[in-house]
């Protein structure tokens, strides 16, 4: 039982990543594809926070916790997750802007209908 719980959060991250990849590969709509990319990225949040977790620990914020009185989770991966969220949000915004332009120029958001290049 403990062997399973010790890897389960990592496996959840793998599963989220793969399900996002499946959605990307089979997507019929570019907006849906951008959403799938966000799902892939969500896997990295789960992975980072799972790597940093410590049993029985609290948040690494000492405004109401006496330093040294309790174990805290790893703050480095939490900062990385924050960076990850910000970059993910900006990439999503940029991709959605591209989708708006694709829809205007080509009149479709189905990636299969965009295969030929048009000027």
């Amino acid at each position: 039982m403990t062997a399973v719980t010790h890897v389960l959060p990592y496996l959840v991250a793998v599963w989220i990543f793969l399900i996002g990849c499946y959605g990307l590969a089979t997507s019929r709509n570019l907006i849906h594809a951008v959403g799938c990319l966000s799902v892939c990225q969500a896997a990295t949040y789960v992975l980072l926070l799972a790597v940093g977790y410590r049993d029985g620990a609290t948040a690494p914020v000492f405004s109401d916790v006496e330093p040294g009185s309790r174990p805290v989770v790893d703050p480095v991966v939490q900062a990385l997750a924050l960076t990850d969220v910000v970059v993910g949000a900006t990439v999503t915004a940029l991709l959605l802007a591209l989708v708006v332009q694709v829809a205007k120029r080509h009149g479709t958001v189905d990636p299969d209908e965009l295969s030929e290049l048009r000027g």
């Binding site: 719980t5 010790h6 890897v7 389960l8 959060p9 990592y10 496996l11 793998v14 799972a50 790597v51 940093g52 977790y53 410590r54 049993d55 690494p60 174990p71 805290v72 989770v73 790893d74 703050p75 480095v76 991966v77």
Partner: peptide, 18 residues
């Protein structure tokens, strides 16, 4: 994943230094 350190382990050298 099977080779990663156990979830909830106590060894976080970078975290402790941070």
């Amino acid at each position: 994943c099977l080779d990663l350190p156990d979830f909830g382990g106590d060894r976080h050298p970078y975290g402790d230094r941070a």
